[in-house]
Structures are given as C-alpha cells and as structure tokens.
C-alpha cells in the first residue's frame, strides 16, 4: 500500500524521499517550474513551483511529500504570484522573443503563456549585458539569463568541468564563465556537454542552427507546456 497526499484534491502516490514535484510529475500533474530539472539536484531558487502545503507556501521541488499532506497548486492566488515572478524575470533581462532563436522552445516563454501573462507589468531594466561569441560552436547571450543555474549544475555534476558559475549577490547576481579571460573559448566546454543542452531559455545557443524549426512546428507551438511530458 503506497502512501499518498492530495494535490488540488487529487490523490497522488509517492515513495519515501520523493519531493512534491517528483511525485506530481510522475502522476502526470504539471507544476510550473524553471530552475527544476528531473535529472539534477533541486536548486529551489526560481520559486515558480511554489505551492501551498498544509496551508504554508513552499517550493515543491525541494519539499518532501508526506502522507496525508494537503497541497494546493492551481489556485488563482498562487498562479497570480507565479505570474508576477515571471513578469519580474522578463523585465530584469532583455527578453525580445521575436528575435530570439529559442522562441517557441523556450521554457520561460511557454510558462508565461501557461500563466496567461499578457504584459510585463513592471518597468523594464533594459540591462547592458555583452554576448560571448568566442566559442566556435556555441553562442552565449547573457541578456536572457534567468539564473536558474542548470548549466552550472550540469557542468559541475555531469560534465565534471565547472565551466559556469553564478557570481555576485542579490540583484547583482550574474552568470560567469570560469576562465581567466571570462571567455567560453578559453574553457574546455564542448557542444557534447550536458551543460550545452539544459538551458531553459536562449542563453546557450548552438551556432548555425538558429530558427531551424519553422513557426507552427516548434515544441510549444504544438502543445502548451502544461501538457508536455514531465513539463518539458
């Protein structure tokens, strides 16, 4: 007899040690998220996956499921907060979807659609961030970084290379490349790395592959993010 908790009134089975996110994903229930990836240790930083567990807000990617727990996710209150967080991510960076190669495959964009984000609401920062085109195969466009740290975790935990890191604190936090020059070409980063595959937005881009998939046939043109397997 497996243990269960309820998520928006639906009974979700789980195994000992599983987080709310893991159990929900396994049961085919989508909880919006950006910094969570099933293959990596959770980071708990984007807060998009916030749910109310037994009445208290918590990140569902880090909170362990407990028997009998009552979890709320798809409520107007929580989705309004998720929408506000997403709007803040949009205005903090430079997210110009029409000229972004990741458009249509972007988890940030698809999550904003899912949450019904009609406008960025806040005033834009329009930050000045340089791109790094030094690597022969990969372009880094820091304008779109949402600091999810997936590339940091992939490079450190899977590739064993430590190519990326988050530097600075608070509003000054930014993604850096671990080389004396700060340039990607001065690292042993390669296109075959896991870190080259995990960016949920359009920061880590393969050169000469842009806009290869026509509009209408891209990942999230075909189905909204909430209906994709494991939310990806």
């Amino acid at each position: 007899m497996s243990q269960t908790f309820t998520l928006d009134g639906k009974s979700i089975p789980f195994e000992d040690g599983q987080t709310i996110m893991q159990a929900a994903t396994k049961a085919g229930v989508f909880i919006p998220h950006l910094c969570y990836h099933p293959e990596f240790k959770p980071h708990g930083s984007c807060k998009l996956c916030t749910v109310k567990a037994n009445g208290r807000q918590t990140a569902s990617c880090t909170m362990r499921a407990m028997a009998g727990m009552v979890v709320e996710s798809e409520t107007e209150e929580i989705n309004a907060e998720r929408r506000a967080l997403t709007q803040m991510l949009f205005v903090e960076g430079n997210h110009f979807c029409p000229s972004c190669e990741k458009s249509g495959h972007c988890q940030l964009q698809a999550t904003a659609y899912h949450l019904g984000m009609m406008s960025p609401h806040f005033d834009h920062f329009f930050p000045n961030r340089a791109v790094d085109a030094s690597h022969p195969e990969v372009l880094l466009d820091f304008n779109r970084c949402i600091l999810c740290s997936l590339c940091v975790r992939a490079s450190r935990d899977v590739d064993g290379k430590n190519v990326f890191a988050l530097s600075g604190r608070g509003i000054k936090t930014h993604l850096i490349v671990n080389a004396k020059s700060g340039k990607l070409s001065d690292t042993d980063f390669s296109l075959a790395d896991k870190a080259a595959q995990v960016c949920p937005v359009g920061v880590i881009l393969t050169k000469r592959k842009g806009f290869a998939v026509p509009i209408g046939e891209r990942s999230y043109d075909k189905q909204p993010i909430g209906e994709t397997v494991e939310g990806r």
Binding site: F96, P98, P120, F126
Partner: peptide, 8 residues
C-alpha cells in the same frame, strides 16, 4: 508591450 525591436 516591451519596446520590441526599437528597444534593442
């Protein structure tokens, strides 16, 4: 909505 291309 967000300035678009001119805002670049």
């Amino acid at each position: 909505i967000n300035g678009g291309l001119p805002a670049q």
